[in-house]
């Protein structure tokens, strides 16, 4: 809740220049940053407002058949965009299962990737937390850990990444375009977020002062057979305990290609290509989805309050596979159907 300077960026390069000072941060929708600032979890010295950068505010078709999502386009605009509804309905459903209409109107696509964890202890500046205050300890391991990871956690952090949208982006193999002081580069979605390891303070592999300019979606949007299932402590306005994004390409009754990504279970959107490979050429049945689920969850381990998520994730993967066969059955808020 400290005072900070504010500057409205007039150009991308201007933004990158303006942010280069200690405590300089980019401001997109603000829905997470302003919250963290109010709690005294981040102490920005200067906020560089990107909202004037019109070049980051469009959704356009790419020559390779894909679609580019501008980083400053709001989550809701993206979810309701005709191109997305038609070709990437999985992404649309996934976005609409996150947060609330009000937040989605402000929250940006770029910002969605940069959300911080919702771990209770991270959010309380008076508690120890290795992510917020490296070396101070992790009270979640022996405390309340219902929201926490069952995959890829470390001795120093068991936090989860809270985004829904990113679960679909992981499944769709999106690529993240970034700009920074050293120029532009593209990061594969699977390489964007990182596991906590012994540096839980780092959520992702974005370089200092780099900013996301766009997210590129490949041509295949799995628009015929897809589903997002979000399991949480209430039917809306809650973070996922377990979520699953599934996209299937089916030909002659057999799975040609499958994508399965999980949310709410790890420090990153969790995707295991080996499990997807296992489904290739198989029939889309509960038994086959169960096999894939077992592969994905083989290394899972839980804590006092979240071990149930291992079995829940398994069942969610199976159900969501079946839901993907009948996208029309799906209900608002990515609630279970069938």
């Amino acid at each position: 809740m400290n005072p900070f300077k504010y500057e409205k960026a007039a150009s991308l390069s201007g933004a990158i220049t303006a942010v280069q000072r200690p405590g300089g941060v980019y401001l997109g929708g603000g829905t997470n940053l302003i919250d963290l600032w109010k709690y005294g979890i981040t102490h920005p010295d200067k906020m560089v407002d990107l909202n004037g950068l019109n070049e980051l505010k469009s959704i356009t078709e790419l020559p390779d058949g894909g679609v580019r999502l501008g980083a400053l386009v709001s989550n809701n605009t993206t979810a309701y965009h005709p191109l997305i509804l038609e070709r990437y309905p999985l992404l649309s459903r996934t976005i609409l299962a996150g947060a609330t209409a009000q937040i989605r109107n402000s929250a940006t696509n770029g910002g969605n990737l940069l959300q911080r964890t919702r771990c209770y202890y991270f959010y309380d500046p008076d508690s120890p937390c290795n992510k917020r205050n490296p070396g101070s300890g992790c009270p979640a391991i022996n405390g309340h850990n219902r929201l926490h990871a069952i995959l890829g956690h470390s001795d120093s952090c068991i936090a989860t990444f809270p985004s829904d949208m990113c679960v679909a982006l992981a499944a769709l193999e999106a690529r993240v375009r970034v700009s920074g002081p050293d120029g532009e580069r593209t990061i594969e979605f699977t390489d964007f977020h990182r596991l906590p390891g012994d540096k839980p303070e780092l959520d992702n592999n974005l370089g200092q002062h780099e900013l996301i300019t766009a997210i590129d979606l490949p041509a295949n949007g799995f628009a015929d057979n897809y589903s997002y299932l979000k399991l949480r402590d209430r039917n809306s306005y809650a973070f996922a305990l377990v979520s699953v994004a599934t996209g299937l390409s089916i030909q002659d009754g057999l799975i040609r290609e499958a994508r399965i990504a999980l949310g709410g279970v790890a420090h990153i959107p969790w995707r295991l290509t080996a499990a997807e490979a296992e489904l290739r050429g198989k029939e889309p049945t509960e038994a086959n989805f169960a096999t894939a689920a077992d592969i994905i969850l083989a290394g899972a381990s839980g804590f006092e309050h979240n071990s149930f998520k291992i079995e829940l994730a398994r069942r969610a993967i199976i159900r969501n596979g079946m839901m993907a066969l009948d996208p029309a059955s799906q209900r608002p808020g990515a609630q279970p159907s069938l």
Binding site: Y6, G30, Y39, I103, N105
Partner: peptide, 27 residues
């Protein structure tokens, strides 16, 4: 709540509903 968790601060900004508590006035 002042933290984007209740919706009581909802206003309509350029035809869209937003949370005024998670928005800086200058923005």
């Amino acid at each position: 709540c002042d933290h984007g968790q209740c919706g009581a601060c909802t206003v309509i900004c350029d035809d869209e509903r937003i949370l005024s508590c998670l928005t800086l006035a200058t923005m």
